[in-house]
Every structure is written in C-alpha cells, then in structure tokens.
Computed example of a mutant assay.
Amino acid sequence: MNWQMLFGEKATTKIAAVFDSESQALSAADFLKSAAGLQSTQVLLVEPYERDYAKKLEPEPQGVARTAIRAHAMLGLAGLVAGILVWFALYAADIPAIDSSPGLSAMAIIFLGSIAGLLLGGLITSRPDHQIVIQRVKTATEAGQWSLIVHPRDARECDVVIEKLTAAGADIARTV
C-alpha cells in the first residue's frame, strides 16, 4: 500500500527553521522559494511572540479531515481483512478454541482486527510526529526568535529544503 494514499493533505512533511533575526528568516524564505521552486503558500514566517501561528503550522484543515476519513476507512478495512485471514489461519490449524465455537471466535477476531485498524487510523490522523515541529516553533516564538515553516510537497522539495537550511546554519526540526 502506498502510504501517501492515507493522507488528504498536499504537504505531509513540515519543516521548521529557527532564526535570530527577521532578515535571516526572510533571506532564507526567498532563497528556498527560488532554489526549491516553492510557492509562497509553502513557505510561511512566524514572528516572535505571534499568537495565532497554528494556521501556519497546519494550513490545510480540509486535508486533515480527509486524512482522518481516509486513514480510518482504509486501515479499518485492512484490519477487517487481517482479522478474517487470522481467523482462517487459526481455523485451518485446528485450534480447539476456534473449532469449538467458530462463529463466536470469528466475530471476536474480526472485531479485534477491525478495531486495531481503526486505532492505527487514529494514530496516523493525530500525527504525533508534528509535535516536534510545533514545540520547536512554540519555544522559538516565546524566546523572541523567527520561525520559517516550510511545507514541501514531495521528497525532492524536502531534500532541497533540508540541504539549503542546513547550509544556512538554521536550527531545523521536521516531521516524517
């Protein structure tokens, strides 16, 4: 399965770079737009002490909702199929507990497989890897620093952004 199918967002990776001055952050933003071919909507600046920067970290609320629906539907279905396969394997292995009550054991195993898939869908929707970037931007904002938030849309853009920000000596945090 292509993991990108689970996500409804155009940019699933987020990169934050922290700078001490506005001029450094603006220079890096302009350089990234030209070097990586990024659009203005992919490169956002968070000012020191800015309060409403959450929209810059997650600019695609509709994409997050699509991710929730896709991840739960696909992984819930995958869990259902996995539960059926596990039950058939156990039934074929002549496990006494399965043979004695095949209907109840099938319902239980298939139910648990489905629940496991839905839980995994919830984990993917919650995106715990985003906390690294969110916390780094929060810390920088409270410390009076400038944060540059970049939303690359593919691996090539991501590699170019990381390379250029590393060369600029920026403090970088990124999601998966």
Rank of each mutant, 00 (worst) to 15 (best):
M1W: 09
M1P: 00
L6D: 01
E9H: 01
K10D: 07
K10A: 09
K10W: 06
T12H: 10
T12C: 09
S23R: 09
S23A: 11
Q24W: 03
Q24D: 14
D30Q: 13
D30F: 03
Q42E: 10
V43K: 08
V43E: 06
E47H: 13
P48F: 03
P48M: 03
Y49F: 15
D52F: 09
A54N: 06
A54D: 11
K55R: 11
K56C: 12
L57A: 07
L57Y: 05
E58A: 12
P59C: 11
G63K: 03
R66E: 12
A68K: 02
A68G: 05
A73P: 03
A73D: 00
M74V: 15
L75D: 00
L77A: 13
G79M: 12
V81P: 02
V81K: 00
I84H: 04
I84L: 15
V86P: 00
V86L: 14
W87A: 00
L90A: 13
A92I: 05
A93E: 06
P96T: 11
S100L: 07
P102C: 02
S114A: 10
A116W: 10
A116F: 13
A116H: 04
G117F: 13
L119S: 11
L120P: 06
L120R: 03
G122D: 08
L123S: 10
T125E: 04
S126Y: 12
S126I: 09
P128Y: 06
D129T: 09
I132P: 00
I134V: 13
V137S: 03
A140W: 03
T141V: 08
T141M: 03
T141K: 07
T141H: 02
E142Y: 04
G144E: 09
Q145L: 11
H151I: 07
D154Q: 12
V161T: 14
V161E: 10
I162R: 12
I162L: 15
E163C: 08
T166Y: 01
A167C: 02
A167K: 14
G169E: 10
D171S: 10
I172D: 08
I172M: 13
R174V: 01
T175S: 15
